[in-house]
Simulated assay, not measured.
Amino acid sequence: MSDHYETLGLSRDASQEEIRRAYRKLARKHHPDVNPSEEAADQFKRISHAYEVLSDEEKRRNYDATGDENGGAGFGGGFGGGFPGGFGGTFSDLFETFMGGAAGGGRGPASRARRGQDARVAVRISLRDAVFGSEQQLRLQTAVRCTRCEGSCCEPGTGPETCSTCQGQGVVQRQVRSVLGTIMAQEACPACQGFGTTLPNPCHECSGQGRVRDEQQLTLKIPAGVDTGTRIHLAGRGEAGPGGGPNGDLFVHVEVEEDETFKRDGDDLSTTITVPMAAAALGTTLTLDTLDGKHSVTLEPGTQPGHVEVLSGLGVTRLRSGGRGDLRVNVLVATPTDLTGEQKELLERLAELRGEEVVHGAAQHKGMFARIRENLKNL
């Protein structure tokens, strides 16, 4: 059996993206619709099988470790697990092989129907969508059930036939030398690849895989309260399984874009407003644009820089528990600059009326302690 990496022309450390590109390139070249020769059809089957194994993380790990995508130990000509005589497995593999061969039954034929791979996709949403929830349209390149054969892998009106080599058992026996002597070992039937049946008339649309790659559109409902890192699990919306097997699952990873106006802290939001010095001193009412629309904010007279006005219930929806956090409005007080002569006189008059004096550019109020310090200096 040829090496799957060699079949796709890849190194053993190839990434999933490199595996996908190599498969698409070779599949287009050897597809029966493009190249009707029998040799191309066989090569297409090998390419498809190699891609099926290497694109599945678990099968690839098993294949890299044992040479078998199902995790079984190989029967190569080396020592492998430390047994002389050409047996490459462990003690458990050896006894399993021995008992299977003696019983004459073994593991039996494998099913062509297998569960499809899980799919993962990322989606970026606005802060508003995270606060209130939304619907997003996703377009996915994925494996879907073949509509021509409905997952049966056969041309319509035909079906699989019992393998004449293994008589439908899916396995054949051969002699293997081991530490226990020569035993009868079982291995997957090379004629039917362990399925117990062959496909004399494979579906022309999917080349006997029972599935094809296609673009699918999906409406994703994003619940209110999600945050960056939230994972949405959609059961049965992943890739269709080969041979009519069930679909895998779809996992959607959410990323919330930063907002220019509002910052998020858990279920709370915060924003900053700047008010003139006179408005902060006298008190004022402002109209603030929130995610819920316009909202009035009243500042009491004498509002200081750094004051935080809390607007309850205008924050982020609490995921799975209901209710919402708060909107925290941070107040900055703007000190006037580029004063005219008249404006300076007015401020100086205000400082005089309040008993303040300007010392090195800082306003000081002549309170009791200030007067004591001044008197001490004059002693």
Score class of each variant (00 low, 15 high):
Gln186Glu: 14
Asp214Gly: 11
Phe87Thr: 00
Asn330Leu: 02
Glu187Lys: 02
Arg213His: 11
Gly100Glu: 14
Gln16Tyr: 15
Arg139Asp: 03
Ile232Arg: 05
Asp214His: 08
Arg354Ile: 03
Val329Glu: 06
Ile222Ala: 00
Cys163Gln: 02
Gly210Ile: 02
Leu218Met: 12
Phe369Gly: 05
Asp265His: 10
Leu291Ala: 03
Val308Met: 05
Pro276Cys: 11
Leu299Arg: 00
Val226Arg: 02
Arg12Thr: 14
Cys149Trp: 01
Leu286Cys: 08
Ala65Pro: 09
Leu269Asn: 08
Leu138Arg: 06
Glu17His: 10
Asn62Ser: 06
Glu239Arg: 11
Asp118Thr: 11
Ser48Thr: 13
Arg28His: 11
Glu57Cys: 00
Arg61Cys: 09
Ala119Glu: 09
Ser152Asp: 05
Arg28Val: 15
Thr298Ile: 12
Leu291Thr: 01
Glu52Arg: 14
Asp267Trp: 03
Ala102Asn: 14
Asn70Lys: 03
Ile372Asn: 02
Gly238Phe: 04
Gly236Ala: 09
Arg328Thr: 05
Leu319Glu: 15
Val34Gln: 12
Glu69Phe: 08
Glu255Phe: 01
His360Glu: 13
Gly266Tyr: 02
Leu291Phe: 10
Gln343Trp: 01
Leu218Gln: 03
Leu138Asn: 08
Ile19Gly: 05
Asn62Met: 01
Ala41Met: 09
Val121Leu: 06
His4Ile: 05
Val121Gln: 13
Ser11Gly: 13
Leu199Phe: 06
Gly76Val: 01
Gln141Ile: 13
Ala113Pro: 09
Ser111Arg: 08
Val212Glu: 04
